[in-house]
Computed example of a mutant assay.
Amino acid sequence: MSEQRTRPVVYAVWLIIASVVGWFAAFQLTIDKFIQLENPDAELSCNVSVMIQCGKNLGSWQGEIFGFPNPLIGLSLWIAPLVVGVAILAGARFPRWFWAAFGVGVTFAFGLVCWLIWQSLYAPNLGVLCPWCMLTWSVTIPTFFATMVHLTRNGTFTSNERVKDRANSLMAWVPLATILAFAIIILLAQLRGLDLLGEVIGMIL
């Protein structure tokens, strides 16, 4: 069994980076939510334009699907991959049931993000893209892809050595899969009539 399979350093480092970025985005959204609750007419820092803003999302029912602001989910759950990543670097080994539970959590996060992306683009009361939400998407999507590949190669999904070896080689394709996923989101935004690409370029320039 390869060292990469037994101690996935690159995967662990990514979990740490993704957790920090995801938690930061959730923190910023939480601050904006507090500002919005205090003053509904306040101009939030994330409100870049009519099409790219977070105020509309935070004030919608989709922004509180469990009865409380969605950013609180990120503040709580991004701690898990951070701890897992640090533990792996420290040499920790987790049992199969732990990885299975971790996979369920990551899959839930991915499913929630996909639903929120669809709502942001196509819900009649939204039709906007939130900058901090997009930052969250940018780390959640590759984390899901990488985790599914990792759970295959570490034996959580299968004990077939050939399948595990193939999954190990697939990890190098996670960045490409992520780029394709982002391309689909941009395409959906364009089809919806949101000039996402132009807005993003404008923000950079």
Rank of each mutant, 00 (worst) to 15 (best):
F144K: 09
G22Q: 11
I185F: 15
L75G: 05
I79C: 10
T136M: 07
W61L: 06
G22R: 13
A146Y: 11
L187Q: 07
M148I: 11
S60W: 05
R7P: 00
L176W: 13
F108A: 15
L58T: 02
T30V: 06
V163F: 06
A172H: 07
W61E: 13
E38Y: 05
I201Q: 08
I16E: 10
G111E: 10
P40C: 06
I201T: 06
R93P: 01
G111T: 01
I73E: 03
C46N: 01
C54M: 04
G85F: 03
S49Q: 09
W14K: 09
H150P: 00
E43S: 14
A12H: 13
L77A: 14
S76C: 09
G63S: 07
L191F: 09
M51W: 05
L126H: 10
L44E: 06
G105P: 14
I184Y: 15
T140G: 04
A101Y: 00
A18L: 12
N39H: 11
T156V: 14
T152S: 11
V139Y: 07
A167D: 01
W78C: 12
H150S: 08
P69L: 10
A12D: 08
A26E: 13
I88W: 11
G127R: 12
S2Q: 06
G67C: 04
I179Y: 11
L15Q: 12
I35W: 03
E3P: 00
A42W: 04
N47F: 08
A123M: 04
F145T: 09
N125A: 11
T156L: 05
G103P: 01
V149H: 04
S60M: 07
I204A: 14
L191A: 05
V149G: 08
Q36H: 09
L44Q: 09
M171G: 00
N168S: 13
L44V: 02
I31K: 12
N70K: 02
L170D: 01
F145R: 12
P8C: 08
P81R: 12
A123W: 04
G111Q: 00
R5H: 05
A109T: 14
V113M: 15
N160R: 02
Q190C: 03
C130I: 06
S169F: 03
T156A: 06
L151K: 04
W99P: 01
G155S: 08
M171K: 00
P95Q: 07
A167N: 00
Y11H: 10
L126E: 06
T178E: 09
L29G: 15
I186S: 13
W61G: 01
C46W: 03
R166P: 00
W118E: 01
T6G: 03
N57D: 07
N168H: 04
N57W: 14
G198N: 07
L188F: 15
V200S: 03
G127S: 06
A101C: 06
V21S: 08
W99S: 12
V139I: 13
F144W: 15
P8Y: 06
T6K: 15
K164G: 04
F24K: 03
E3M: 02
W78M: 14
A109N: 10
P124R: 09
T6L: 14
A100G: 02
I17W: 12
D41G: 02
N125D: 15
G111S: 11
S76K: 01
V200R: 00
H150Y: 09
I117L: 15
A87S: 15
A26T: 13
C114N: 11
K164W: 04
S138F: 13
F66C: 05
V86K: 09
Q28G: 14
I65A: 14
A183D: 12
F110D: 09
A181K: 08
G67A: 02
V174Q: 11
